[in-house]
Simulated assay, not measured.
Amino acid sequence: MTTVGFLVNPIAGMGGAVALAGTDGQSAEALRRGAVPRAADRAVQALSALPGQDVEWCTCAAPMGEDVLAAAGIDHYTVLYRPAVPTGAADTKAACRAFLAAGVDLVVFCGGDRTARDVFDAVGREVPILGIPAGVKMYSAVFAVNPAAAADLIHRAGEVPCRDSEVMDVDEEAYRSGRLTARLYGYACVPYIAERTQGGKQVFEQQDEERAKNDIAAFIAEIMIPDALYIIGAGSTTARIMERLGLLPTLLGVDAVRNGEVVARNADERTLLTLLDEHPRAKIVVSPIGAQGFVLGRGNQQISPAVIRKAGLQNLIVVATPGKLAATPLLYVDSGDVALDREVGDSLQVVSGYRIAQRKRIVHPE
């Protein structure tokens, strides 16, 4: 039987849908903007999928773990740590130290990159760690690709190999101002199964990549429909589309464009839904995260399941350069709505140049 130390960062991911690009130090502002906590739901989704009772659980009191275990129907656990209210990084680290003292075999946490860093600070490489993805960005390679994959990895812990995986330290203040500043924080030991454990993000800046971005931008600008609303997701490839239109992009946010003019900059979910009420004919343009392959659910939570359903899944346009696609063999969707993720299907056509597209396989770990 595997002994698992389990904790939840209750505020993780709240900043995504309300266009805060992260939640570190911003939980009060996220709530003011109408954000809804999502980490607990993501954790319940993962733990509810575990087959049988083959895990001995150690956890934290109330919202940092105990509530999730109860909601997932798990009634045999030991509470080893009682956090302060509200919880913070110090609680994550203290809980992990308590898990280590209890001799756990694996530390499972639900959160984002900052939570991963705090867990790593306390655990290091003494035991494997695994993240249930609930943050905004999640550039670290310590997360399962979705809650169902996390359940499989937990169930098979001790049987599957571990690998050294990057823990990334992302500067959220810089991120909010449109600059991606990340450094390697360390290498954690993480259970690894292909198509279950996500990779680290890669950035592509070669000369040929820049030419490909220009070609993609020229093609998308050419096929834009008059009076239609275009929701432009985050990334350097989608930013080039905005620049082709003579518009200033929000590199790490979501913009909305109609008839060559910006109608919303760095829009949140609520703004996008309002715009879709006013302009029901719409397209959504996104680019997968390099190497990780996530089309939805990483860094673009403003484009929520409600937004996608309102615009129509058939109006989703995915763009990526050939270099990015070559380093990204598989695509994933983790929108938070399992039914919607399934509706995306088993493959997507990705625009990779001027009137050029590639069809890429989508993996649904369930």
Rank of each mutant, 00 (worst) to 15 (best):
Y187V: 10
T197I: 00
A149N: 12
Y185A: 14
L184T: 03
D164M: 01
G186Y: 09
D152S: 14
A151I: 09
D164Y: 04
A157G: 09
Y175G: 08
A157C: 15
G186D: 07
R163N: 02
E195Q: 02
P161Q: 13
N146P: 14
A188P: 09
Y187L: 14
R196H: 06
D152P: 03
A174D: 08
A144W: 02
T181P: 01
V170D: 06
A144R: 02
A194P: 02
C189S: 15
P161S: 12
L180I: 00
P147G: 15
A144C: 00
R163Y: 08
D169N: 04
Y185N: 05
A149G: 14
Y192F: 10
D171L: 10
V160P: 09
P161G: 12
A182D: 03
V170F: 09
R179C: 01
D169K: 05
G158I: 13
G199I: 04
E166M: 03
G178M: 01
A157P: 05
A144Q: 05
P161H: 11
G186T: 04
D152L: 12
A174C: 10
A157H: 15
V167K: 01
E195Y: 03
Y187Q: 14
V142I: 01
A144F: 05
F143I: 00
S177T: 11
I154F: 14
A182M: 08
V160E: 03
T181Y: 09
G158V: 14
R179N: 01
C189T: 10
G158C: 12
D171G: 12
Y192D: 04
L180P: 02
Y192V: 06
S177Y: 07
D171S: 13
D152F: 10
R183T: 14
P161L: 11
A174M: 11
E172K: 07
C162P: 05
L153R: 08
L184H: 11
A144E: 07
M168L: 00
N146A: 13
D164L: 02
V190E: 00
S177C: 08
V170G: 06
V142N: 00
P147A: 12
N146Y: 12
Y187S: 13
Y187T: 14
C189Y: 02
R179L: 01
C189M: 05
E172P: 15
C162D: 10
G186N: 07
T181M: 04
G178L: 02
K201N: 10
Q198S: 06
G158K: 13
V145D: 02
F143T: 00
E166K: 01
D171H: 13
P191S: 07
A148K: 11
A150V: 14
L153D: 02
E173W: 10
L180S: 03
G186E: 06
I193E: 12
C162E: 10
A174R: 07
F143R: 01
Y185S: 12
L180F: 06
Y187N: 11
G186S: 06
G199V: 08
E173N: 12
S165W: 01
Y185D: 08
R179E: 05
A182F: 04
R176D: 06
A151M: 02
D152E: 13
A188F: 09
V190K: 00
G186W: 09
P191L: 10
